[in-house]
Nucleic acid binder design. Structure first.
Length: 591
RNA sequence: GGCCCGGUAGUUCAGUUGGUUAGAACGCUAGCCUGUCACGCUAGAGGUCACGAGUUCGAGUCUCGUUCGGGUCGCCA
């Protein structure tokens, strides 16, 4: 039954045929979506990446061809030549629904076993199965569309940066491990036993060196690797749109980033993005949304109640404030039916999971105020809380009392959890915001020292340099994140090029001159030979695709993703290697 | 590493308080059918109830462990 293509060649993609093609002899090929056999009349739907077209076989069809059509099953690979005809009954559901191909030459190029799941749009098959048979999952029209859109996004990206004078340069995959930040994937060296390459977490150092080399504007669609645990929006290998520019300050980089976003949204989604994009300081993001990546598609701001309850009779509130913490709240509108006692208990469990000791709450029901702490505080205080939260009948207020380090992230997480449950997040909106004035250092309780919140080449704001040694908490960075619908989409900064300042930075981070030289010497050495001021950013291509295409997971926009345990169920990697390979590398595994 | 959710036919699911031979839909196979397009009709095949132990007269159902998958916290400069 199987045949070779012979001289048959495709003239059209299936989904492109229309009634304007009537009478033409065309050849299409693809996978069989479905065969409908009516006895003396057979229809075969053929699918390729552009869509589906119907083939028809009847009593005018040559007998041997009719028999092949009869034997055709789903997912067979076929090629068919025939005349485009207007259908006697039109299918309005599909773009090719007005025509069909009356076949006069037909070959089955490959048969197919019944696939483990149907190749249809919007299938809700288990993740496990989809990933094991990823090549079949990728046949599904929605995934095909996503992957093709990703290609278009990459194309617009290259066009935009090319038109703006950027040069695409590849940087190495096998590099030196710089033990900062995320865990590196290591590649043992065969030639030098005991030594390793690392896969890049980002092309950071190389792109800065390219500025020293005078390329002035660089971009790359770069593969990056981080050996950390996965999330719906985190894969161990991912792609960044990486860029760096010389002779610029923050505003110049943001302007390029904004121009890119505007162009991309227009070309890909025909959405007009208004520029300049809104900005929010890191401090405001934390104080009002409890997150450095606030989802601003809905309101529900965090409110500070500390001054109202500081003298209240409720020990939990009073105690938190006396310990230098705060009492803060969020108010969910029309939530009283959703957040029954039972659901508030569940919410309390989530809050505890995040680090809060508990949750205080107020429910404004038709029957009056119900609250977990009403008996401990005065009526005036309760009224003040309700007024401050701008709460009305039907609303639910949840309150966390603790150190800011607990109250803010907890309420930030509850805000998202409640908004999801209440279904108040507008799904068709794209909300973009720059987060600016990022803090420079982060206090590490365990080591009792200050850690860099960014890589150590990030420049401080000019006016903050004076506090570098005296008051690290006050220092803010020339760093900026672009947040889209509550997902960190991009992160960048202006870099330090002044050797004295760089020395101070290493010093403030507790890095000795020798350590700094060992880790980053080739960069600081490079700066000695003339370093233009420069800065840039990295934009997460996978996340960008995920959000623009309204997907829930990166797995919907990455062709061959890893599972949550970092495995690939299809190829079954990672896997045990050949003994000789391991021996060549001079390494040994512990039992 | 912690927490939460899940695993029943090829697929998606139902399965009552622990009680006879574990069901449905779709898919698959065969037959019939000249205008279907989620074709229709008829018949049929298809199950280690994830795996292992335990409780019980009796376990898909209860308990414990393991495993696989999802979400999340830690982690992700």
């Amino acid at each position: 039954m199987l045949e070779f293509m012979g001289n048959m060649r495709r003239t059209h993609y299936c989904g492109t045929l229309r009634k304007t093609n009537e009478g033409e002899e065309v050849t299409v090929c693809g996978f069989v979506q479905r065969q409908r056999n009516l006895g003396q009349l057979i229809f075969v739907d053929v699918r390729d990446r552009t869509g589906i077209v119907q083939l028809s076989f009847d009593d005018t069809t040559e007998k041997s061809i009719f028999e092949k059509a009869n034997a055709t099953r789903s997912e067979f690979v076929v090629i068919a030549k025939g005349i485009v005809k207007i259908r006697s009954s039109i299918n309005k559901e599909i773009p090719t629904g007005e025509i069909e191909i009356a076949v006069n030459e037909y070959k089955i190029l490959s048969t197919a076993e019944t696939p483990p799941f149907e190749i249809v749009e919007n299938s809700n098959v288990k993740e496990e199965l989809r990933c094991k048979y990823r090549y079949l999952d990728l046949r599904r029209p929605d995934l095909q569309r996503n992957i093709i859109m990703r290609h278009k996004i990459a194309k617009v990206t290259r066009d935009y940066f090319d038109e703006n004078g950027f040069i695409e340069i590849e940087t190495p995959m096998l590099i030196k491990s710089t033990p900062e930040g995320a865990r590196d994937y290591l590649v043992p060296s065969r030639l030098y036993h005991g030594e390793c390459y690392a896969l890049p977490q980002s092309p950071q150092i190389y792109k800065q060196l390219l500025m020293v080399s005078g390329f002035d504007k660089y971009m790359q669609i770069a593969r990056c690797f981080r050996d950390e645990d996965l999330r719906a929006d985190r894969q161990p290998e991912f792609t960044q749109i990486d860029l760096e520019m010389s002779f610029v300050d923050t505003e110049d980089v943001l302007a390029v980033g904004e121009g890119y976003i505007k162009r991309l949204f227009k070309e890909i989604l025909d959405v007009d993005v208004k520029l300049p994009l809104p900005r929010m300081t890191f401090a405001d993001a934390m104080n009002f949304y409890g997150s450095d990546k606030p989802d601003l598609r809905f309101d529900m701001k965090i409110t500070d109640l500390s001054d109202i309850v500081k003298d209240s009779g409720f020990g939990v509130f009073k105690g938190a404030i006396e310990n230098g913490g705060s009492v803060r709240a969020i108010c969910a509108k029309d939530a009283v039916d959703t957040y029954t006692r039972k659901n508030i208990d569940r919410l309390t469990e989530s809050a505890k999971g995040i680090g809060a000791k508990g949750l205080a709450w107020v429910r404004l029901t038709d029957e009056g105020i119900a609250s977990s702490f009403a008996k401990f505080i005065s009526e005036d205080e309760m009224n003040a809380i309700i007024a401050r939260c701008e709460a009305e009948k039907g609303d639910v207020i949840v309150i966390v009392a603790d150190k800011d380090k607990v109250t803010l992230p907890t309420l930030g997480a509850l805000r998202l959890e409640m908004a999801n449950k209440l279904d108040i997040i507008p799904k068709d909106e794209y909300n973009l915001v720059w987060i600016t004035e990022m803090p420079f250092f982060e206090y590490n309780d365990e080591t009792d020292s200050w850690d860099a919140m960014h890589h150590p080449f990030t420049a401080p704001l000019d006016e903050c340099i004076q506090y570098l040694e005296s008051d690290p908490a006050k220092v803010k960075a020339k760093a900026y994140d672009l947040v889209m619908n509550g997902t960190e989409m991009s992160s960048g900064s202006i870099r330090i090029t002044n050797p004295d300042l760089q020395k101070k930075m290493f010093n403030a981070l507790g890095l000795s001159e020798q350590e700094a030289q060992e880790k980053f010497g080739f960069l600081t050495d490079a700066f000695k030979y003339g370093a233009p001021p420069h800065g840039g950013m990295g934009i997460g291509l996978d996340r960008l695709c995920m959000i623009m295409l309204k997907c829930e997971s990166l797995r919907d926009v990455v062709a061959f993703p890893k599972m949550q345990n970092a495995r690939d169920l299809m190829s079954e990697s990672p896997a045990v290697c050949d003994e000789q390979q391991i021996k060549d590398l001079g390494i040994k595994f512990e039992e």
